[in-house]
């Protein structure tokens, strides 16, 4: 079969720069700041996250040597916070990517093969949606041990069923539209049809779903780590720090407060962005 090039001249879409609501601007600034902190963690952290300063144990926040204070072992809370942000964001980004890829692929498979494959995918999706994820994650994690890659993969199972349902629904709808039929009849392989033609058309809806699932992944990971079953010491994550700081809640509440606030602001910011994006991009809400 001749290799037909299907380049479509891109029409320049007039870019409307929306006036951002204040909440959305603040959320963008916060998320941007978090990403910068995560990327530059090693460069900007004043101390190593396991470095002990036994002379300054449980020192109050505000001192020039330790802006956010120190914990029981004299470890700098700010440095630990910066490392925690990096770890938590790595897990959340990695998990969201895995979950979106897995869900979209399964959704496409269901849309392409229909029949038994579709039924199996839908059944698994129902199953995933009907069982509390935390319970299943607890079972898997504690029995397989806790390595960072495993944790990322496990969290990557969070929310896949939502992408799968969306991708299946949209792909089925796209299959009956002219463009998909046209490239198929030109001899494009199914992979090409889905990856190069249908995916770009439904990407905006999927991206919105990602911003809506992302904060939930952060919450889930921090919950697991808080229970002591997520990220394992000496490695640290936001939930881990809260779980550890809880032991010192009467004597040194600052150990717990800064990671707790970081979790809250980050999930809040991403949720605000997600809601805003959904209102702007999701055509079904127009």
């Amino acid at each position: 079969m001749a290799d037909v090039s299907l380049e479509v001249p891109r029409r320049a879409v007039p870019l409307r720069l929306p006036r951002l609501p204040i909440a959305v601007s603040l959320a963008l600034v916060w998320v941007g700041g978090m990403i910068v902190v995560a990327l530059l963690a090693d460069a900007i952290a004043p101390y190593g996250y396991t470095a002990l300063d036994l002379k300054h144990r449980l020192s109050l926040p505000g001192e020039p040597a330790h802006w956010l204070g120190t914990d029981e072992l004299g470890r700098d809370v700010l440095s630990r916070l910066i490392t925690s942000i990096r770890i938590s964001l790595i897990i959340a980004f990695g998990a969201t990517l895995i979950s979106a890829t897995l869900g979209t692929t399964l959704g496409f498979l269901a849309a392409h093969f229909r029949g038994v494959v579709e039924q199996i995918v839908l059944m698994l999706a129902d199953f995933q949606a009907s069982m509390p994820f935390l319970i299943m994650a607890l079972a898997v994690l504690a029995f397989f041990g806790n390595t960072l890659p495993l944790l990322v993969c496990l969290m990557g199972l969070y929310g896949w069923e939502r992408y799968a349902r969306i991708a299946r629904g949209l792909a089925v709808a796209a299959g009956s539209q002219g463009y998909a039929a046209a490239v198929r009849q030109l001899g494009a392989s199914p992979f090409r049809v889905y990856a190069r033609h249908i995916l770009p058309n439904i990407a905006s809806t999927l991206i919105v779903s990602m911003t809506l699932v992302f904060p939930e992944v952060i919450l889930m990971e921090s919950g697991l780590s808080f229970l002591g079953l997520g990220v394992q010491p000496p490695m640290t994550s936001l939930g881990n720090m809260v779980g550890y700081g809880r032991e010192y809640i009467t004597r040194a509440p600052w150990i717990m407060l800064s990671p707790a606030l970081t979790i809250v602001f980050t999930t809040l910011a991403v949720s605000v962005l997600g809601d805003w994006l959904r209102d702007r991009l999701d055509p079904t809400l127009r």
């Binding site: 904060p215 919450l219 939930g239 809260v242 717990m256 707790a260 809040l268 949720s271």
Partner: peptide, 9 residues
């Protein structure tokens, strides 16, 4: 957006 353990603590 506030996780239950943060609210609880």
């Amino acid at each position: 957006t506030v996780p239950s353990f943060v609210l609880g603590l």
